[in-house]
Design a protein around this nucleic acid. Structure first.
Lengths: 236, 236
DNA sequence: CAGTGGTCTAGACCACGCC
DNA sequence: GCGTGGTCTAGACCACTGG
């Protein structure tokens, strides 16, 4: 009967489900730790492990002496790490991409450093226009070590999410992204693509994705349309 | 001998210290959980509680069967939540502020909604130019419920960090910020302050700060100089 | 194989909020 | 006082990595 899934994960899954179904409402109290112990026939430390995970990701909060509650918050963490495609879909837009370039290169010095590879190692350079309902929203330039993702060019990244591809074919999950953002004026080709004009205001982002062992797996340098796109960020 | 501080907090403090002192280096292994049990004369669950906290905030990572390691990452999470003053100091700049306005107002509808107060409730409106080494970097407009922070106007926010003031005098700690960012062209007074010109590219941010109980405690709407300022963000 | 982290138990006492 | 969450114990067995 008990799956091979750890009990604490069963409990977090159960709590998330009941929240999604609206059984536990925002701001309402959830069953006490003791009740959950009885319900899942387990010890309190295991229940607390489950609740801790949900408190850490912001789903629940605790008040000592009173109980554990569902956050008032419409939680949208992880969005950026899940990528543009996912983000657009949650906003109700149809994401699509147009590939500008997908080739093997020698990395520039700073990119090699960020990816912790040698300048003589190869990288895939993937440049895409990202669109929402066919409107150009961003230009994303991604660099990935060839060693880590051999044969990546076999896969169609026009239709599929890059992160889905890494997950499915290379068992690589992004754990964390370190990103920098500023605002600049885009000109030339970039401005033409995003604004159909020769100038436009964009957010410029650059940064590195890491896997669960904190190995760098991708470097990205992108431009986002200043007003059509909004970063939606939760900072703890 | 043992302080009133929980053991797991003593352990996290110890580990952080040794990392800062360079005794545990980036990528290096730290003592095993069993060794830390002996060192602190405590049980493994307590040691794990301590390590979990540091894994969750990205300071450490674990590999089953091998050990626990110091992240390769120069970690700068929490920066934004700690505020502009703190951020600038970590970058080696001298932060300062010039208050443009500090008064009691009735909130606009959307701000009242975000702060979960009535439109008839009062808010403090604090508008400041934030500077680094006397160069204007940002214009921050913050709205705080008067009910929650009675007498806030007594304190000098020209010299002191707003968040320090909330912490010290109102025992209020920011747990989380939900922030949105886009890029626009600033004009008029705003552009004059930040660029000494009548136009300039800025990052526009707006969002809400929450305390540990997920009560909204401040709404901020700010403009950051597009190129002098860079958001530095870690997304998990 | 030994050593590491991953999960779990069945209790304990304390601090806090509420009635 | 009672029920809540906060901290902690002293074990246990499993899964994984390395030599």
């Amino acid at each position: 009967m008990p799956e091979n899934v750890p009990i604490y994960q069963q409990i977090t899954a159960y709590i998330k489900e009941t929240i999604e179904k609206g059984i536990y409402q925002k701001g309402n109290i959830i069953p006490s730790e003791q009740e959950l112990c009885n319900q899942f026939d387990t010890s309190r430390m295991t229940v607390r492990r489950a609740i801790n995970d949900l408190v850490n990701d912001g789903t629940l909060y605790r008040i000592q002496g009173r109980g554990t509650f569902v956050s008032h918050f419409v939680f949208r963490k992880y969005l950026e790490v899940l990528g543009f495609s996912y983000h657009m879909r949650t906003l109700g837009f149809q994401p699509s991409s147009k590939i500008l370039s997908f080739e093997i290169q020698k990395p520039e010095k700073n990119i090699a450093e960020e990816l912790k590879i040698l300048p003589s190692d190869n990288v895939f350079y993937l440049s895409r226009v990202r669109m929402a309902d066919l409107e150009p929203i961003a230009i994303e330039n991604v660099f990935l070590p060839e060693k880590r993702f051999p044969g990546l060019d076999k896969y169609s990244l026009e239709e599929n999410s890059l992160y889905d591809t890494l997950r499915t074919y290379y068992k690589t999950e992004i754990f964390l992204r370190h990103e920098k953002i500023n605002a600049i004026v885009a000109e030339g080709t970039d401005a033409n693509i995003l604004f159909s004009k020769n100038k436009g205001v964009v957010m410029h982002t650059w940064g590195v994705d890491f896997d669960t062992n904190m190995n760098p797996i991708a470097y990205a340098d992108s431009l986002y349309h200043g007003t059509k796109y909004t970063f939606d960020i939760v900072i703890k």
